[in-house]
């Protein structure tokens, strides 16, 4: 099972792309764990998580074809 991960704002600077794919990821906690391992700067970054365009606040099981989005807060005006 492949999960599409998309990131926004300055998170794209951390992972050097706006999108990546992760294989055999079961839930959102595992997404965070895997990304933190690959991109240590992400550990201290602030963002919210959406699965298939729905915000999640707790660990969420992923389905085949799910897209996980990481959205940071913007302050600029």
């Amino acid at each position: 099972m492949t999960t599409r991960i998309i990131v926004f704002g300055q998170l794209t600077d951390i992972i050097n792309s706006s999108e990546l794919a992760l294989d055999n990821i079961r839930d959102t906690d595992s997404v965070v764990e895997e990304l933190n391992n690959r991109y240590p700067a992400l550990v201290s970054a602030k963002y919210m998580i959406a699965v298939d365009k729905q915000t999640v606040t707790e660990n969420t099981i992923l389905k085949e074809g799910s897209t996980v989005a990481l959205l940071p807060p913007f302050s600029g005006g």
């Binding site: 926004f8 704002g9 300055q10 959205l71 940071p72 913007f74 302050s75 600029g76 005006g77």
Partner: peptide, 10 residues
């Protein structure tokens, strides 16, 4: 609410 950063806005 509206906010911007670099090339993106909310």
């Amino acid at each position: 609410y509206g906010a911007v950063s670099q090339y993106e806005g909310q």
